[in-house]
């Protein structure tokens, strides 16, 4: 028997053993993911195509697309999608611009910027329910400090939660207060990682602060901005807690974002089948849009 033939089965055994070890490391995660992600999604799909049996509190008779047809005819579902879209269209760009802007400004060398960065984390660690409650107090038309401050310069009083148009702006303000620091952190890390020589070259060429930002920093940051947008989009599309804690979706339907509506349909009205259909539609829409954003993000990466 040659040495080669003796080595081959040993190598094969080593490869199989290596594979087995790798899978054994991954198995707990796979089991966990199936339990907490795949099974609930499958169960939601099953309920969305069934009538909901209250006697067993589970999927009943298979009824095909009936729940989906009901949801598509429900004006409240479309209104909630529209409200969510309005929120996303305003909140995401504001947070990205503010986040990167603040990061750019505090990136300059000055004493105490470390402390400022640490303070920026505070809104992120405040529980959403607490944040909603605090903002309700701050913005209260009678006792709130914000209206009092505006009053000092002859503005207001503003009905932050009672005016249907202002209520959405209020939600965006609270959400921006909460999530901009997250973007500041990412942007700060990104700015610190940018190559210094390019900035030095721009300085030697006589580029001012604005020209450096526009022609050097932003193109270099473009892929990171795009990636941050995708991350924040995935968080923002789940918007629920702040609205629940501050406006309950009102006044009227002004801030009734889609996740709040699905929650209410499921746990207040006990329309589990219809709300499952809504959840599936939203899941598909979110996946499609996320796919589009990821493609855009990759294109930006290649471009710069």
């Amino acid at each position: 028997m040659s040495t080669d033939t003796a080595r081959r089965p040993r190598r094969a055994r080593t490869q199989w053993g290596d594979l087995a070890v790798r899978w054994s490391f991954m198995l707990p995660t796979i089991v966990l993911l199936i339990a907490v992600l795949a099974y609930p999604i499958w169960y939601t799909i099953e309920i969305s195509f069934s009538s909901f049996d209250m006697m067993t509190f589970g999927a009943g008779e298979w009824i095909g697309w009936e729940n989906y047809a009901y949801v598509i005819e429900d004006y409240r579902f479309w209104e909630s999608l529209w409200v969510t879209l309005v929120y996303l269209v305003f909140a995401l760009p504001i947070q990205i611009v503010l986040g990167f802007g603040i990061a750019y400004l505090i990136n300059a060398e000055w004493g105490g910027r470390g402390l400022l960065r640490a303070l920026f984390i505070i809104p992120m660690v405040v529980a959403p329910v607490v944040a909603g409650g605090i903002w309700r107090m701050l913005l209260d038309p009678i006792w709130g400090v914000v209206n009092w401050a505006f009053g000092l310069v002859g503005l207001g009083p503003f009905d932050w939660f009672g005016d249907p148009n202002l209520a959405m702006a209020t939600i965006i303000i609270i959400d921006t207060w909460r999530w901009t620091p997250f973007i500041v952190l990412i942007a700060t890390a990104a700015l610190l990682a940018l190559p210094r020589d390019v900035f030095e070259a721009a300085k030697i060429d006589g580029a001012g602060r604005w020209a450096t930002l526009w022609s050097v920093a932003l193109p270099l940051l473009a892929p990171i901005i795009a990636a941050t947008f995708v991350i924040r989009w995935l968080g923002a599309v789940k918007m629920f807690d702040i609205v629940l804690a501050s406006t309950l979706g009102g006044p009227g339907k002004a801030t009734s974002v889609i996740n709040l509506f699905i929650y209410e349909e499921a746990f207040r009205s006990l329309n589990f089948a219809e709300s499952s259909a809504m959840a599936m539609i939203v899941l598909v829409l979110t996946m499609l849009l996320t796919g589009v954003f990821l493609i855009g993000s990759r294109k930006l990466e290649k471009m710069y």
């Binding site: 006044p251 009227g252 002004a254 349909e265 329309n271």
Partner: peptide, 23 residues
């Protein structure tokens, strides 16, 4: 009704719309 909560939520939605001047 066995569906009283669903009915109440519908009323909540619509009464809120009327109070807010949206309908």
């Amino acid at each position: 009704s066995p569906k009283s909560d669903a009915a109440q939520q519908i009323l909540a939605d619509e009464i809120a719309r009327a109070l807010a001047g949206q309908a």
